[in-house]
Each structure stands twice: as C-alpha cells, then as structure tokens.
Amino acid sequence: MSPPGSSRVVRLSVNGEPRETIVAENETLLEVLRERLRLTGTKHGCELGECGACTVLVDGDQKLSCLLLATEVEGAAIVTVEGLASGPDLHPLQDAFMELGASQCGYCTAGMLMSAKALLDENDEPTEGEIRDALSGNVCRCTGYASIVDAVGVAAARLRGER
C-alpha cells in the first residue's frame, strides 16, 4: 500500500490533447485542471458539489470536477470550457451565451456551458423543462437563468440547422 498522500502519474486526454501529470492521491480533478494544468476556465464556488461551477465533461458526461479524484479519471477524455471552441470558432452555445447575455459576471458560465453541452450531445431538441433540468445543479446569481435557458434553446436550434 502506498503511504498516505502519495503521488503518481496520470494520463488524461484534456480537450483532445494527451496530458500526463503527477498528481497526489488526494487531489481532485478540479485542482489538477486549475493548478497543475493551469486551465483556470473551470471555476470553483464551494468545492463540495453544491454550486456546479466546476462542471466538466468526463467521457461525455457532465461531472463535478471538485468531487472526482484525479487518479480515478486516468485515461478519461476530459472536456473543459477551454475545449469547447474549435480554434477561433466558438461553439454555438458560446455564441448564443454571448448574444443573449447569458454570461454576466461569467463565473458560472463554464459550468453552465458544460452542462448544456452534455444535454445537447444527448438531446438535440430539448424542451425548456429539459434545459432547466439539465442546468438545475448550476447556481447562477446574475441572470435568473432566463437568458441562459434561452441561449441553450437557441444553440440547440442552430445545431439542428434552424435559425
């Protein structure tokens, strides 16, 4: 058995890039993304799984990076907000968030976008209720969720080739 607090090397795919980094066994994916890989787009507002700011995609599922041991995502494909755009081309969700003002202070935005991405990857024509449900673990204090819900709907329509 390794002594408490041991480190080891983990291999991840982060936004499509293979990454290899040393992590301590008690480090969360959130800490590894922000502090080891310096991908600070993923935010934290509680570190206890209560606010949704740290939501990322792990093998396509929306997950809270503050509650994942980095050692347990060995080999997984991680997508963060930094991986949403294709080069300079924003993802339709990002465009819609900008156009509709769904990002005000912007602190919940990364988590919102990743939750929305997970939804649209699975359901290309969500109802308003389904959108609200998909975002129901992401706290936003600026928007009242209204423009965010609208933006996800607009992005979904654009992804379907409408509008």
């Binding site: 058995m1 607090g5 301590a24 969360t28 800490e31 206890l48 050692t71």
Partner: peptide
C-alpha cells in the same frame, strides 16, 4: 479552496 485530507488509495 476546500481540499481533501491525505489518505492511502486502494483499488
């Protein structure tokens, strides 16, 4: 940031 205490991890 709230962080985890140290532990040994077994699989």
């Amino acid at each position: 940031m709230l962080r985890l205490p140290v532990f040994s991890y077994l699989r």
